[in-house]
Design a protein around this nucleic acid. Structure first.
Lengths: 160, 160
DNA sequence: TATTGTTATACTCTATAACTATA
DNA sequence: TATAGTTATAGAGTATAACAATA
């Protein structure tokens, strides 16, 4: 049901600690990889005071102007209730705005401001370098392979 | 500096939302994959009331009896200050224990209890099924490839 | 002086319940 | 009745500063 080769040597726990079965745990490997990516992200974006969720939000708004909050939060995998303070944080900084929707006065449509677009241009430049550094760790074809495997893991059709 | 193939089609944001450059973001892909793995973990371990960090701690203690707190917390990637309540939680349940070290009265050595070992046996069985389900999502050789790529990302020698 | 474990604290992310105003 | 957005709140995970006991 598995059939993978041995990869016990892939994980080096620091300080001569035996990793044991932890060396083959996907959850543990994902956690360590995400921590490393976050460290590089923090170093790369320190000057812009932006967090990953804010960056992702701005990117979605640029490519999908006028979406409703529920649509954006669902696309980002954030509950609509937790999306409110996230959106507030970028709206307070004048990077995005809520506009009232004609025809449904409950909803609000989301747009980047000019300032948001200007910031996003700088962020995309920083991100290109960030992704290039990570890609260099992975070797030729590594990033494409990794994105494919991660997308398979994340496929909600397999969900319990 | 990159040279990967196009994989825009790998990410399907729900609700006809254009992912844009988010489709090639490693941080975003990692976040979604980790969320999916966590959902499967929660479903698999619901009956045992155990969290990933507690499980990882028990596993390290089994394979490395007598380690000091600092060593274990470092191996798990948890700061020693945050490790204290984690260890407290498993010690309160009688799964592990602190023992005084002869020769250094500041330190404590960590051991699984018999109850901890018994629980860990059940957890390892659940985890084998959990990992097998994830491995099935990835296809033949997928898990080994993914573990290798994640280890490359996590390699601290590349850290900023 | 430095190290081990600890407390206190704060910030982010996430999760649930309940509310409002609309539809 | 149901939906879009909101508030309040609680639980984890993580970060820094500072302390006591010991080395």
């Amino acid at each position: 049901m598995d059939g993978d080769a041995d990869s016990e040597d892939l994980l080096d726990l620091p300080g001569a600690v035996e990793p044991g079965p932890l060396a083959r745990s996907l959850a543990f490997a994902l956690r360590r990889a995400e921590a490393a990516v976050t460290r590089d992200f923090d170093a790369a974006f320190a000057a812009e005071d932006i967090r990953p969720a804010q960056f992702a939000l701005l990117r979605v708004l640029r490519h999908n102007p006028g979406l409703r909050q529920s649509q954006v939060s669902f696309a980002l995998g954030i509950q609509r209730t937790n999306f409110v303070p996230l959106l507030d944080s970028v709206e307070r900084r004048g990077l995005a705005e809520r506009r009232t929707v004609t025809g449904d006065r409950r909803a609000s449509a989301l747009f980047l401001t000019r300032a948001g677009l200007a910031l996003l241009d700088r962020l995309e430049a920083l991100d290109a370098e960030h992704e290039a550094r990570l890609s260099a760790r992975l070797g030729p074809g590594g990033k494409a392979a990794l994105l494919m495997l991660l997308a398979r893991l994340a496929d909600r059709r397999f969900d319990p």
